[in-house]
Amino acid sequence: MGTGHIAKTLAALAGDAPDDGGARLFLRTAAAVPSDPADLVLMNQRARRLWNNEYPDLVAGRINARPADVKIAYWLLSTSQQLVINQGLEIDQSTQWAMNWMTNLLADPSQRRLFGTQTVPAEAAEKLAKQLQQRDPYVYNSLVQQMSKDLQTSDQEIVRDVCNRIEALNSFFEPLASDELDKYNGQFANSLTTATNLAICKARALADARARGITPPAEDIQAATALVGTIRSAVRRRERTERLGCDAFTRQFACKRSRSANERFSFSKRLNNRSGGPRPTA
């Protein structure tokens, strides 16, 4: 965990009564997402306990969704989201259930009235669900940023260690297809930054060998050249994605729209070319 607090986090327990009284007590005290990790875990656990109590009845249709359920799900999701971004929390079953339940509620026009200033604005709930779906890009971005920072230190031992790990991470990314990579990149350039960092490692190793009068093995030079090719194609893919205004989320919808808009544009361009190009304007 970031800067510590594990012992406090271990002690963070949720002891609210799992009934309406407990929910009322929790919702009366829940005002903002805490910044301290132990307080965050405590609030997350309190919301989880109440949510776990309600969810089986909600999903089985034994009870109708109430504003208090929306608020409890919201606190579970928003504290989970903070723990994902700052502490790398893995999304557990309760959080996943809350995400699915809230997403279904938002998509149902008759249930959407449950969202608003008295509970949670629908836009805030939608944004939260979307951010939680981006869990892996956030976790990998924090790792990649740290690796980039470590690469800049003057301690050769640290640089050697981090280069080992960068190579391992690059080996993980390299065989992934574009769609699979999107799951780890999201709005970030995690795989591209990793390949670039590895190129820095390789360049340093080659320069170091040369400085010591050692001829680098041919396979090292081939590997470095292949890496440049990987970076080039990653940059081209990234540029194409940015040009189309797509990220991992919007790819499915907005990206397709942009693509078809582009296709229409190039089709009209081809037509213009065939008919001698667009007419000059006066």
Partner: peptide
């Protein structure tokens, strides 16, 4: 309760 966190390597 049980929570799982992914800890990133830090070599600062």
């Amino acid at each position: 309760y049980s929570l799982i966190f992914d800890i990133p390597t830090i070599g600062d």
